[in-house]
Design a protein around this nucleic acid. Structure first.
Lengths: 148, 148
DNA sequence: TTCACTGCAAACGCTTTGCATATGG
DNA sequence: CCATATGCAAAGCGTTTGCAGTGAA
């Protein structure tokens, strides 16, 4: 699926979500979705704001936060809270569930998948009588370039 | 090891850390450590501030943040960034490495241990040529009281 | 027409910082 | 002594909120 097809697909998902929830299909919302799917990697609100400012669309921070909330709800993006400050986001269209390795020296991010995570979620959930919906896992250390 | 012995032990560790780094051994720092080791569970800066205010010691927020930083450095506490706001802390003296289940409805926190986490760290580290030092894992969902 | 959405700016809340004062070494 | 710590209050900074104006349905 190329970039164009992905955009059509997420556009459709977002449209259906907005319709089903009785939300309005405003041009701002679709412009934001479009900009997000142009992002190669992780991004934050400030970056998105600057990029859209440079282009045709200038949206307010309030609208950005509002729209990111909607996109989170229909799972078109994922939110990461790496530190205590700026939240990071990434697009997540049909992407395989994955976690992250973070280099504490150079900030490199590597994605990985491990089926044992799902097993742990199931087992720990069962054992504690918890309905586990979601998780966040980050491994911290030094990448090959940074370890001595 | 009882509460008294634990306090003696962490006191010694903190003293040695401060000395080795050339930091001053101020009464505020030890009062804060003491108050933290009276906490049964997780706590945040505000809670610590209120508790100390009620007792003999009234320390400023600035000093609390400063001291928490030192205690993090010598691994006598662990810091959690559950949301984008208030950071949570917990004491970590020789406690078994554990992770957390968080109820997204009532904020209940349950701790759990799973040896598979360590296996994942080893395997993913090896596979990606990463030296994995640390990790954070949180499972989110509904606890037995909150799931419908 | 109408009410949800947007933009703007002010408010929020946790954390950090600046500065005068106090004190450990 | 004097450089480091403390207390206080102000500043920072990402995020949220209030409100008047706008535009999708």
């Amino acid at each position: 699926m190329n970039q164009k097809e992905i955009k059509n697909s997420v556009n459709k998902i977002f449209t259906e979500y907005l319709t089903s929830q009785g939300y309005r299909k405003t041009p701002e919302r679709f412009a934001i979705l479009d900009e997000i799917y142009d992002c190669k990697t992780h991004f934050d609100v400030e970056l998105l704001y600057m990029r859209m400012k440079e282009k045709k669309y200038r949206v307010s921070k309030a609208t950005l936060y509002n729209t990111l909330e909607l996109l989170l709800a229909c799972k078109l993006i994922i939110k990461h809270q790496f530190g205590q400050n700026t939240a990071q986001y990434e697009k997540s269209h049909k992407s395989k569930q994955h976690d992250h390795l973070l280099c504490i020296a150079c900030s490199r991010i590597i994605e990985f998948c491990d089926p044992r995570i799902q097993e742990i979620k199931n087992d720990i959930g069962d054992f504690n009588n918890f309905q586990v919906n979601d998780h966040s896992l980050y491994l911290y250390g030094y990448c090959e370039k940074c370890k001595k």
